[in-house]
Design a protein around this nucleic acid. Structure first.
Lengths: 121, 121
DNA sequence: AATACAGTTGAACAATCATTCAACTGAAGG
DNA sequence: CCTTCAGTTGAATGATTGTTCAACTGTATT
């Protein structure tokens, strides 16, 4: 019937299995959810941030502690902590000159454990 | 005792809580595991790849089907399918001119479901 | 053989991003 | 007030990466 939808202008081929496409399209989550999903995985996609989160699984730590643990500058750690905080994954509290960071979301562990199962096979 | 380890040359501060750092360091997973973990999340960090995986949750599809579904060129889909295949997340089979892709790893769904819980709160 | 089409591939381009550097804020101690 | 130190911030840089484009492979059809 239709070789290529008008709104799908960037598609350069005909539908081979229209029924399959229709069925799958019907069950696809909303665009915004898929974007949010990719965004949260993007936060996890940097090894520095993964290391920070694994550290915070164990204990509340200040920026200096994390810097020493990972052998990186305070600046780079602070930049990454900002990313983690914007994603609501960590929270912080100030005590004098020291800022302590801790985990804000407990099911990060569950996600990491599941991903580990995939990696370790 | 030691203000800054010799091997941690890029660290620009003193350890404030040495005991905490020591305890956390003791329980940190191996470097290679943390890198692999970040790598698998990097695969999930692009919305096109997330969409492809969600589509394959429902049905086996050829490149053309996915192109029509997502309104993108065959070329870009093919590039991303290659990334997913290198990560052992999808497999494919050829039937004449058509190449069908399907899910190779079932616990991707579990990872996505857990991440959805974080996103939807 | 020749055409058509599904799919792949590599180079090129633009956008994104992690780290570095330098300057800055803010709190504590002398 | 002045210094010190924990931490933040913004610009700059180098690396990575998603998409496009054009050329290509391979299979089926006529």
């Amino acid at each position: 019937m239709y070789p290529c939808d008008a709104e799908l202008d960037r598609c350069d081929c005909n539908t081979i299995h229209e029924e399959v496409v229709a069925k799958v399209r019907e069950h696809m989550p909303e665009e915004s959810i898929l974007l949010d999903l990719a965004d949260i995985f993007k936060v996890f996609s940097d090894s520095t941030r993964v290391k920070i989160l694994y550290a915070l699984f164990r204990a509340e730590m200040c920026v200096c502690d994390i810097s020493v643990l990972l052998g990186m500058t305070k600046s780079s750690i602070s930049h990454q902590l900002r990313v983690l905080k914007q994603a609501n994954l960590v929270k912080n509290r100030r005590e004098g000159k020291v800022v302590y960071y801790s985990l804000a979301d407990e099911h990060v562990k569950v996600i990491f454990d599941q991903a580990l199962i995939h990696v370790c096979e």
